[in-house]
Simulated scan of single mutants.
Amino acid sequence: MRVDVVLGLQWGDEGKGKVVDVLAGGYSVVARFQGGPNAGHTLYHQGQKVVLHQVPSGIFHEGVYCLVGDGVVLDPEVLWREVEGLRALGITAEERLVISQRAHLILPVHRWLEEVSAEGEKIGTTRRGIGPAYADRYARRGIPVAWVDRADFEEAVQALTRYHAARFAAEPPPFSEAFWAGVALLRRLPRVEVGEWLPQFDLVLAEGSQGTMLDVFAGTYPYVTSSHTTVAGVLAGLAVPAQAIREVYGVTKAYATRVGEGPFPTEIHGEWARWLQEKGGERGSTTGRLRRCGWLDLVALRYAIRLNGVTRLALTKADVLSGLPEVYVRVGGPDERPTYVTFQGWESLQDRSFEVFVEFLEAELGVPVWGISTGPAREEWRLRSVLRT
């Protein structure tokens, strides 16, 4: 078994779903290894925009299995709605969607906890119940997917709900019909022990969500997500050995964005920030919140590349910068006083000034730029190096 990885090198929203969609046809399995419905991977299928939160981005490729791995937290209601949405597009996800028995469930009470506590607002989370679900997992009181077959499953989820409700005066929300429809869907879907099932396939593509700078250990703590967004998360979340990792595709925008609170050394304000927000459509695909924007940060990128052992870079949204008179890249200095290199702007990605920008990134980062996204559609790519087979 050989495993290639696609992951984000910034604070998420880098365009990982599109990279996975481009690559997926060459693999037997596309596997999510961490995160939950806080992911929002935007794809275009037959000209229609689709945002996937729980289903891996390989679902539009016939013959490719889509695995929700051990390290994922899964909201049955979100999964059910997503599968039904795919059905409306003519995609029968149940034929190729496989769920780990060891993934854990997000219950309505987990989303409720983020509403009644101040934590979600303070950190700037997506309010999808991700943190509370992971907290229950690590406290050894969570509900794994395997439990949906137990006779006492309903009592187990009710008991966990009562446990959390006892901490607050308010009543938690009831279980919706959609939640139980999601549970019924989980009972119908193939469920596996990932460590036994995955090694039968030769080529696996691991799909990350969020970004390296949001990793619960390696990110800008405490303004982080609740899972391991790095290559380390692949090993734990898919039960694969380190020797299985082959290529690591690190995805970065040609500038930087961040949703929610937390440090952002290259953040910009004013006219150019509004340019990036408007031209780049910089609104969170999960939360709808306007993204903060800034210049590309090579200090943070070097850190993320080293941490993940990145072998190839995928550069996205460089077309958004087209038309700016100048483009800035942070190359050093403390976070409080970053130092920048200034590049001549470009009108199109065919301009020599853009190629100078790309060559500079390769020289400074020591990693080749494998491909450049030239727009949102699947075919809008410019590949710069040959894939290894």
Rank of each mutant, 00 (worst) to 15 (best):
D4C: 01
V6T: 05
W11Q: 05
D13Q: 01
G17N: 02
K18I: 01
A24H: 03
A24S: 11
G26F: 00
S28E: 10
V30N: 04
A31H: 02
Q34R: 06
G36W: 00
G36N: 05
T42S: 00
T42C: 03
Y44T: 06
H45F: 13
K49Q: 09
L52Y: 11
Q54A: 04
I59V: 07
F60D: 04
E62A: 09
V64T: 09
D70R: 03
P76K: 00
L79Y: 13
R87M: 06
L89N: 09
G90Y: 02
E95T: 15
Q101G: 01
A103R: 08
H104V: 01
L107E: 14
H110A: 07
E114Y: 01
S117I: 08
G120W: 01
G120N: 10
G124T: 02
T126F: 11
G129F: 05
G129A: 08
I130Q: 01
G131Y: 00
A133E: 06
Y138V: 13
A139T: 12
R141H: 11
I143S: 03
A146K: 09
D149N: 06
R150K: 06
D152K: 12
F153S: 00
E154I: 11
Q158G: 07
A159G: 03
T161V: 11
T161M: 05
R167N: 10
P173H: 12
P174Y: 12
A178V: 10
A181K: 14
A184C: 09
L185A: 15
L189I: 08
W197K: 01
L198G: 11
Q200S: 13
F201A: 10
F201K: 05
L205I: 01
G208F: 04
Q210P: 04
T212V: 00
M213H: 02
L214V: 15
D215L: 12
V216W: 01
T220K: 09
P222M: 10
Y223A: 14
V224G: 03
S226E: 12
S226P: 07
T229R: 00
A232N: 14
G237W: 05
Q243T: 15
I245Q: 07
E247R: 08
G250H: 00
Y255W: 02
A256V: 12
H269L: 08
G270L: 10
G270A: 14
E271Y: 10
W272D: 11
K279I: 09
E282W: 00
R283T: 06
S285W: 03
T287G: 07
G288I: 11
R291K: 12
G294R: 02
I305E: 11
I305N: 02
N308R: 13
T316G: 07
A318W: 01
L321T: 03
S322W: 13
R330N: 11
R330A: 12
P334K: 08
P338V: 04
T339E: 15
V341N: 13
D351T: 01
S353M: 15
E355L: 08
E355P: 05
V356N: 13
V356F: 03
F357W: 06
F357I: 10
V358C: 14
L361P: 10
L365F: 02
W370C: 11
W370E: 10
W370N: 11
G371E: 12
G371F: 06
I372G: 13
W381M: 02
